[in-house]
Design a protein around this nucleic acid. Structure first.
Lengths: 334, 334
DNA sequence: ATGAAAGCGCTAACAA
DNA sequence: TTGTTAGCGCTTTCAT
């Protein structure tokens, strides 16, 4: 390996404990020796071995980040927030892409725990808990992003999904729409449930009926082709909705494609609203109306919250939900 | 901490070396004891401490991945390739987003080396080497993706940038364009140079002049707004090109926006071709003609090559360039 | 202010 | 087949 603390000690003729102290600028160390140690270690090109340090300190300054789909621009933005905040706080992050796959998620969690990560930030692939028992038992600090698990004692950073959905659907109603559809995916997901709830609330608040055939979230993924597929189902209905609220922007993009291929216009024939406000939503060719989430901030706050939990470990074990505000961005598809 | 190897040893009444052997299924261990160890450790919920193992084995089964912009969908795709191949090979990956910032890159490299990563995969922020000396000196196995450093002995996985650019520009020439512009960013970047080279070659091969004012790669970033800005410059020219070849899709998207806002049509007035084929390029509203790179495969191959280098360490230290083929995808912007 | 020594959890000779 | 022991590189008591 490289230069170790012992090499430096030998070189200077002090004990390696002294070198360690100097390097960590411990108070009880002679100024001259400290300077000397610092100088020599620079000269010799010494790099501390974080692995060894971690072993004795029982901490690794490393956290794991589990996201379900790195291909959906929403998550890279969150990841950037986590990442930059982590760098600022002196942490490194292991990125794991679960692909919404419970098995992979489980596998990754195990691997991360064995790597002794100090904490975990994750958007779980589902609300079911069994595959998360390892985390629960290990008691490693965890914060959830864009997700919330009932029955479990985790901190989470989320946007007000219900409110966001409500805003979108209310806007559609104000525009005169009476027959509004919902496209989502995976009933099991927290955020999906919440946005569906907001959708229903808005309809009910305005005396509108929630039609079962208008709600499509029983199958498919959160990707474009799924939006395309589900919209096509909706287009087969005797009374196709005149507006669609989609769980996310990717689904909305797929829905729009289906609508256009069906020979109809957006928003003239059918209006579409998404969720997330990924960067591509603002392209002149797209101009997608959508509910914006503070993606970067969610990541940043998640990391900061996690670090806080790690530092104050077991002291204040109060978990909480940090809820951020969404905002409706009106563009050309509604 | 959790359950350790010693706890298990105590429980069963054997030495902890035996437990270690059983757990790593070493040949020389009694079948019964092995079974017993396995059973008990499962019961006690034992998880090996990778940190400790790494310390003695002098390997961490961890690699670092440095990418310049996680916000550009090109990199997440590469990252996915790296990630999945890594999981398959039993490695974990530290993701670091450098934001094209040399200082951050340097900082991350240091951090990764201190974490004793077994290898590095990176797209460096620039071709200059000084900030990479740490890597060079540490002799940690490294493979470059989508980049190639002259004067240095690294393996890299790249697409044939020259050929890709040539294909794009030749196609434009065949379509009758005589006045073709280039939009790039950061002259210092390898890939930028290569694509510019391909652009020039294609022009020269067809007896067309390379006009300095048509080449815009001296400033700006690789992002959309930069393409927008540079295209606006081109639009001010007395003879605005009738076709533009862009370093990447993001720049192309920005250029298209500028063209449209200028009251001209794509491709009727000005044709645009990008590079990368990010997923959004295929949206019906975008239909961007572009040079496709095998993004996922680049990541996968990079990881596999790296692992190979790690395993055969110092044996076959021959570095090479792995060059993949690009393909021109003709859509509606050309 | 410094040194000696223990130990973090594990693997790997070397003995037995 | 199993146990003993040293040691990976570092931090941290406890002495001095």
């Amino acid at each position: 390996m490289g230069v170790t603390i012992k090499d430096i000690a030998k070189e200077i003729g002090v004990s390696y404990a002294t070198v360690s102290r100097a390097l960590n600028d411990h108070p009880d160390v002679n100024d001259d020796t400290k300077k000397k140690v610092l100088r020599i270690s620079k000269e010799m090109g010494y790099k501390p071995n974080d692995i060894a340090r971690g072993l004795v300190r029982q901490e690794t300054n490393t956290i794991g980040l589990l996201i379900p789909d790195i291909t959906n621009p929403f998550y890279p933005q969150v990841a950037r927030g986590v990442e930059e905040a982590a760098a600022a706080a002196g942490y490194n992050v292991f990125l794991c892409n679960t692909n919404w796959n419970k098995e992979r998620e489980k596998h990754y969690i195990d691997a991360l725990l064995q790597k002794q990560v100090d904490g975990l930030i994750m958007t779980p692939s589902s609300e079911e808990l069994e595959h998360l028992t390892a985390v629960l038992k290990s008691r490693v600090e965890t914060v959830f992003v864009s997700s919330f698990i009932k029955h479990a004692d985790f901190t989470s950073v989320i946007v007000d999904n219900v409110r966001g959905a409500e805003m979108a659907v209310e806007y559609l109603i104000e525009k005169g729409h009476q027959n509004i559809g919902f496209i989502g995916a995976g009933e099991g997901r927290f955020a999906n449930k919440e946005r569906l709830k907001g959708y229903k609330q808005a309809l009910e608040n305005h005396g509108l009926e929630v039609k079962a055939e208008n709600v499509r979230d029983q199958q498919g993924s959160y990707k474009r082709k799924s939006g395309y597929f589900l919209m096509n189902e909706l287009l087969k209905l005797p009374e196709t909705p005149t507006a669609i609220f989609c769980y996310n922007d990717l689904l909305a993009l797929g829905a729009i494609q289906a609508i256009k291929e069906n020979g109809r216009e957006v928003p003239q024939d059918i209006a579409v609203i998404g969720f997330d406000d990924i960067s591509f939503a603002s392209l002149p060719e797209i101009q997608l109306t959508t509910v914006s989430q503070p993606k970067y901030d969610m990541g940043k706050i998640a990391l900061e919250t996690l670090v806080d939990k790690i530092k104050t470990k077991s002291k204040q074990a109060v978990n909480r939900r940090i809820i951020l505000d969404p905002s409706l961005i009106i563009r050309q598809t509604s």
